[in-house]
Amino acid sequence: MAENAAHTVKSFDEDIAQLRAVITRMGGLCETQIADAVDALVARNVEAAARVVEQDKRMDALETEAEALALRIIALRAPLADDLREVVAAMKIAGVMERIGDYAKNIAKRTPVVAQSQPIGPAVIVPEMARAVIEIIRDTLDAFVDRDAEKALAILQRDQQVDEYYNSLFRALLTFMMENPNTITPSTHLLFVAKNLERIGDHATSVAEMVHFTATGQRPAERPKTDSTSSVYTPH
């Protein structure tokens, strides 16, 4: 990506750098929250899960900070062209990151129930799925900081991988529940955990789209959706 020249008014650059730093911190926190939530779930560690829930307040505070910074830049600097696109994207990305944080928190909240039930086999897919999602978030943020449209475009393809994890976990859990109805409670919670991760993947991908728009001014073409679980049914 071509490096932009500095603004004539230097404090404008400082404002943009500050906004970018807040977004980067939100992204880093997203990664940690997802990893910690899934670790706590797998380790059946209720205290660790509670810490994840507690940490989500930081995410909310960062979103507020990003929003205040973006509003100040718009009011004082009247940004245009790529600056305008970046500030608007940053505000939207902050909102999406906060939502991702909520999904991580929701995973953590399910840990106490899952911890009381006996372990179930298909759960082994969850940490793998979480890793895939975390990598998407990490690369998306790198692309954002570098205003790298190519990198953002490459990320869009990777959401399919997450969808595939979700499809296979969904089918596995359905079979599992049919075979052992007494696993319905933990299985349902795991299903929500997987759904949360799948939604996080979608949100992270939409952030990659915003990064592409910021860098080029163009929206990327429609991406393929491969989550097919909405049409899965079980025979009676």
Binding site: A2, N4, A5, A6, H7, T8, V9, F12, R77, P79, L80, A81, D82, D83, L84, R85, G217, Q218
Partner: peptide, 19 residues
């Protein structure tokens, strides 16, 4: 011009980077 100018010179001017 104001959201996605094609020329770098235009962009630098309208975003306050000129000169």
């Amino acid at each position: 011009i104001f959201t996605n100018p094609k020329a770098t010179r235009t962009k630098d001017y309208i975003t306050g980077r000129y000169g």
